[in-house]
Amino acid sequence: MTEQLLIGQSRLYLFTAGMFLLGAVLFALLALRQPSGPRRFLLISTIPPAAMAITYILMAQDVATVEVTAAGRQQSVMRFVGYTVVLSALGLVFNRLVSPSRRLFAVLFAVFVFTPWAALASWLVSGAAESLMNGLVFVGYLTGCYLLFGPTERSAKTVSDGRRLLFAKLRNLFVICWAALIIQSVVSEQSLGLTNFFVGQITVGYTDAVLAFGIFGLVYAGKNALTDDSSTESRQNKQTDNSIKEPTELRTQD
């Protein structure tokens, strides 16, 4: 089957890994040149591409494979380990950005970690169990969306506008990519079988790249908001302020 594809499985994995590795190195070098405040955020944001690079290298080596019921092929568990690391790093960025309560952060982190492993479980079982696991994946996604747009958004109102805006951008990116990954998991050859390995890997790799590179790109673009660690007044209080902003401030917000 491999020789009939445009590129072999291992080469495709290694090509994707090389892309992530190159990005991770560039991002790390870029992060180390920043001041100490944004540097921590940027270094955390370097974790997703680095984790995905390692993941794809290990997948190319067929490390920790399990047999998937629908496709009957060997699937590496390392992809889900990589997603767990990526989502943990993103959760850490969210936590440092808007400082939600410990309880909220713990629930959000649990939902983040639950969904990829539930997706893997749906690949390993069949019939009603598979449908149940797919349903749990969607429930986890919806729960995560509720937590991000509800309680976490309320916590974001207590921090500066720059941090709040950065949180909103990261959240929207993550929600879109998360949904794309879940859809790809459902339509993949391991589940509904609507795609094959080549198309599935291309689309998943693209989604992974958008997510990993997008996180770093958004954090880097909003690094000026990260230099202010203190929480500023809320937007509601700011709206009642009759003072006129300086022109320079308006320009920087443009």
Partner: peptide, 17 residues
Amino acid sequence: IAAITGLVVLMLLNLGL
């Protein structure tokens, strides 16, 4: 079918972005 499905997913992702 796989190609169309993949393109649909990618279009959905890009439209989402």
